[in-house]
């Protein structure tokens, strides 16, 4: 029981500590990167339970701000191989368990 308790506590700690967005890979310019990251954070927090809506929101906002043909993938586990336009890729983790990949390819 103690173990599980500790485990829970650890998990809570982990959640608390790992709530920040962590950019894993990006080649966006500074300004764009910050904006995209903030957008991802907002979307993931708004639709905490529905990744699809979050992805849709991110895609639509990115389309509006940076031109069309954006693609967004949000999930807890996935693999991908994509072709993206240079300087238009953001791959980040968020909330300790989510991976968000945003890229542009027309």
């Amino acid at each position: 029981m103690a173990d599980t308790g500790e485990g829970k506590k650890e998990e809570a700690d982990y959640k608390r500590l790992h709530s920040f967005p962590l950019i894993r890979h990006t080649d966006m310019p500074e300004e764009m990167r910050v904006e995209a990251m903030e957008l991802c954070v907002t979307a993931c927090e708004k639709y905490a339970t529905n990744n699809e809506s979050a992805a849709k929101m991110i895609k639509e906002m990115m389309d509006k701000k940076f031109g069309s043909s954006w693609h967004v993938v949000i999930g807890e586990g996935f693999g991908f191989e994509i072709t993206h336009e240079v300087k238009n890729l953001l791959y980040m983790f968020f909330g300790g368990s989510l991976a968000v990949c945003v890229w542009k390819c027309s």
Binding site: Y14, L17, H18, L22, R24, H25, D27, G75, E76, G77, F78, G79, F80, E81, I82, T83, H84, E85, V86, L89, Y91, F93, G96, S97, L98, A99, C101, W103, C105
Partner: peptide, 18 residues
């Protein structure tokens, strides 16, 4: 200009990164 990028996201990778 385009580039390819590939990665795998799963829970342990995310955890390790954090």
């Amino acid at each position: 200009p385009c580039k390819n990028f590939s990665a795998t996201a799963n829970q342990w990778e995310i955890y390790d990164a954090y």
